[in-house]
Design a protein around this nucleic acid. Sequence first.
RNA 1: GCGCUCGUAGCUCAAUUGGAUAGAGCGUCUGGCUUCGGACCAGAAGGUUGAGGGUUCAACUCCUUUCGAGCGCACCA
Length: 575
Amino acid sequence: MNLFLEYQKKIFVSLKNLEKKKIIKIPSKIRNFTVELPPKDQRAGISCNAAMILARANNNSPTQLAEILKEHLLSNFIEFKSIEIAGPGFLNIYFHISFWRKYLTKIIQLNSKYGSNKMLKKKYNIEFVSANPTGPLHVGHCRGAVLGDTLSNLLIFNGNKVTREYYVNDYGGQIKNFVSSVYYRILEIIEDKTFPQDQNLYPGDYIIDIAKKIIKKKSIKNFSNFNKVYKQLSSESLKYSMQLISGNLNLLGVRHNNFVYESKLVDKKMVQKIVKKLQKKKYIYEGKLEAPKGKLIKDWKTRNQLLFKSTIFGDDIDRPLQKADGTWTYFAGDMAYHFHKISRKFNILINVLGADHAGYIKRIVSATRAISNNKVNLICKVSQLVKLFKNGEPFKMSKRSGDYVTVEDLIKEVGKDSTRFMMLSRSNDIELDFDFEKVTEKSKDNPVFYVQYAYARINSIFRLLKINLENKIKIDNKKFILNQHEIEILKKISEWPKCVELSSSKLEPHRIPFYLYELVTLFHSYWNLGKDNKEFRFVPENGILNNPRLVLLQALSIVIKNGMSILGVSTPRTM
RNA sequence: GCGCUCGUAGCUCAAUUGGAUAGAGCGUCUGGCUUCGGACCAGAAGGUUGAGGGUUCAACUCCUUUCGAGCGCACCA
């Protein structure tokens, strides 16, 4: 259903035939032959650059060659109504109305699958969020969560299999601090002991909630010895903190399929296994690291340690696997985790990381290449910082944690739909300004509203006409006419599969909000024409329905709905 | 010092991956609509794409130099 890819192939085949007749020459290395969307001021359906690319090989000017190609294509494709030669030699191709009618029929038939591309079906693993299970999610996590979830939706829409995965870092020093914090809160409650002033402890109120739950559950009777209760206390604390995080994710409409616990990988000796495996391949050795330059470290001690040779895969330095106390570094555990991913036979691994972890990418990509013998591709997407504003002023707020804005705060204030749409409206590798006021406005300033409003308007038309929008409307083949405005909308609709294709192949979902916004702009603008001129109204005064117009509306509603559901944003019927 | 990301209209951002006169929204200016076909619509002004050089029919896009911003740089995760 991708018009542009389809005609790129068809026109190329057609030109090959022309070559067989020795009318033109096509060089063996022809690269950037494309069929594209014409610029906005051009009314053609599609545009082809063949003449410009082939001009040199044919010893001809692009415009003269274009004349030859034009005649050929017109006689070859009955659906082409006319072709204009424009600019430096572009072929701007117009379709007959019957072509658009058939295209529209296909959209209605495909319905929720319209836009899905026939790509190679692959098995993806998308790891995202993976926040430490030591507290609620904040706004920074939020952007990554929405990005990962939407990428998953997008790839699934295109027929791929996707596992949404959360890596729970429940091993290491931070967890000990977290469990200690819960412990001291429990003592505070049951024995009235003051909570220690210690920077390593977590101060947030949620810790008190967790402490209360554990006391209430009564599975631990005696709290007097920390070491004795540690195992049980840690497992319960983690359970509650993961519940907290899942609840936060739920607010965002995000649900993971799989949670992998670091501690379990450590228990199963997965780290040792992968270390042995890589030692055999000579990717691991004992060596010394230089102190980093440009940064003063007081107590730097050069020591022998276990290192991974990530430099041979393009990393800046080799990376340590063991801490001074002999326990595994985070990286060692993550290596084991990626080994675990690879052993589950995914075609492509995707990690969504926050900006502050970007420096980690080379390391983990190197590790993945080493483990999989270069066979598995790991793609890392970085989501940049979110800056919060309220009425143009930088905004800081937190009722629960003291120093950052939580997902809960955000959703309470602006809602899931606005949050998701706004977070996705920027390329992920650019910083995002998020204004609380703007996203709650019901106006054109707020793109979510603008898109949802278009969908609600379409619904209101069908309500007035007493026609069910969910039922497929039959196209009246005999009386099929569309005016220029309607063809423009249909042309934009025909871009949808291309938008999906680009978004998913480049893993850039921000294209979808932009596309939807442009699409509904055409619709709102057309709607307003109906105010001045009753000829353009969807609900005719004489009661005679305009069938093609309604079919067009249905197609439009399909695209809005498909797009919004990829974004995970609702499409209410009334507003 | 090194690495990653970014630099486009006054502001916030796009740009079909090398294509046509670089496009939207906000803001500014002009005109229209005036309450459920409502919460807007039409139009105008606004640009040396941070700067210099290179590659080619064609560069915001690729290469190179340079300036600026953000993030990161053993034993945290």
